[in-house]
Amino acid sequence: MIQEPALPPGWEMKYTSEGVRYFVDHNTRTTTFKDPRPGFESGTKQGSPGAYDR
């Protein structure tokens, strides 16, 4: 089984109701579709995929 590298501290991976993966940075309280791990580009969309909830 291939294991992906861990997200940076304070980051979480979530999915929209449509199943699109996005990332929550709890450090800055922002969201992005761009994977924060080096070498992982998950898309070019920018903006908030939804309300920030902790």
Rank of each mutant, 00 (worst) to 15 (best):
A6R: 15
F40H: 11
Y52L: 12
V24M: 06
R29V: 03
F23V: 00
G47C: 12
S17K: 11
P5W: 10
L7P: 03
I2P: 02
M1A: 08
I2N: 15
G10N: 15
P5M: 15
T16D: 08
F33H: 04
Q46E: 11
G10C: 01
Q3Y: 14
Q46C: 10
Q46T: 09
V24K: 02
D53R: 05
Y22A: 01
P36T: 00
E41F: 05
Q3N: 15
M13W: 06
W11E: 02
R54V: 10
A51E: 14
G47I: 12
Y22I: 02
F40E: 14
T16I: 02
R54F: 15
L7A: 03
G19H: 05
E12D: 12
K45A: 09
S42F: 11
T28V: 02
A6E: 14
P38L: 11
K45N: 10
S48T: 15
S17G: 11
G50S: 14
S42D: 13
N27K: 06
D53M: 13
E18D: 10
P38A: 15
E4D: 10
R21D: 07
T31G: 01
D35G: 03
F40K: 12
N27Y: 03
E4H: 09
F23G: 01
A6G: 12
M13T: 12
D25M: 00
D35K: 02
T16F: 00
P9F: 14
M1C: 02
K14I: 07
T31C: 07
P36W: 00
M1I: 12
P36Y: 00
I2Y: 04
G10W: 04
P38E: 13
T31D: 01
T31M: 03
V24S: 03
F33N: 03
N27E: 05
R29K: 10
M13V: 14
T32K: 01
T32L: 00
R37S: 04
M1D: 07
G43P: 12
E4R: 06
G19P: 00
S17H: 15
R54L: 09
V24Y: 05
S17T: 11
T31W: 02
I2Q: 11
E12G: 04
T16L: 05
F40L: 10
K14V: 10
D35T: 02
P36H: 01
T16C: 04
T30Q: 06
R54A: 05
V20E: 15
G10P: 00
R21W: 03
P8E: 06
P49K: 11
D53W: 04
A51Y: 09
T30L: 07
R54N: 01
D53P: 05
K14D: 12
R29G: 06
W11A: 01
P49Y: 10
G50H: 07
V24G: 00
E4M: 07
P9R: 11
M1S: 09
E12C: 05
Y52E: 14
F23A: 00
S17R: 07
R54E: 10
E12V: 08
T44I: 10
E12N: 04
A51R: 11
G43L: 09
E18Y: 05
E41L: 10
P49W: 07
D53C: 07
T44F: 03
E4N: 12
S48A: 11
F33K: 03
P5Q: 15
Q3V: 15
R21H: 11
R37K: 05
A51S: 12
R54H: 15
A51G: 13
D35S: 03
Y52V: 13
T30R: 05
G39K: 15
E4W: 06
S17P: 10
M13E: 15
K34S: 08
Q46H: 11
S17A: 10
V24F: 04
S17Y: 01
F40W: 09
F23K: 01
P38N: 09
E12F: 01
F40V: 13
F40S: 12
G10L: 06
Q3M: 14
P38F: 09
G43A: 11
T44L: 11
N27H: 06
G50Y: 04
W11C: 02
M13C: 13
V20I: 08
S48Q: 12
L7Q: 02
R29M: 08
Y15K: 12
G39E: 11
R21N: 04
P9K: 15
P5C: 14
P38R: 14
F40P: 13
S48K: 14
R37G: 05
Y22H: 02
I2K: 15
Y22L: 03
Q3T: 15
R29F: 06
T30N: 09
R54G: 14
P5T: 14
P49A: 04
F40Y: 06
K14S: 06
V24R: 03
S48L: 10
M13I: 13
G43C: 07
L7W: 02
P36E: 01
D35L: 04
L7I: 05
E12P: 00
T28Q: 03
K45P: 10
P8S: 04
D25L: 00
Y22C: 02
G50A: 13
K34C: 13
P38W: 07
R21F: 04
F23E: 00
L7T: 03
V20G: 08
D25F: 00
R54D: 15
H26W: 03
E18R: 05
K14F: 13
G39C: 13
G43E: 10
D25A: 01
N27M: 06
W11F: 12
S42G: 12
P8V: 01
R21G: 07
P38S: 12
W11T: 02
T44E: 12
N27Q: 10
L7C: 10
S42P: 13
A51N: 06
R21Y: 02
T31A: 04
R21Q: 08
A6T: 05
P5H: 14
D53Y: 06
E41K: 12
F40T: 14
I2T: 13
R54K: 12
Q46M: 11
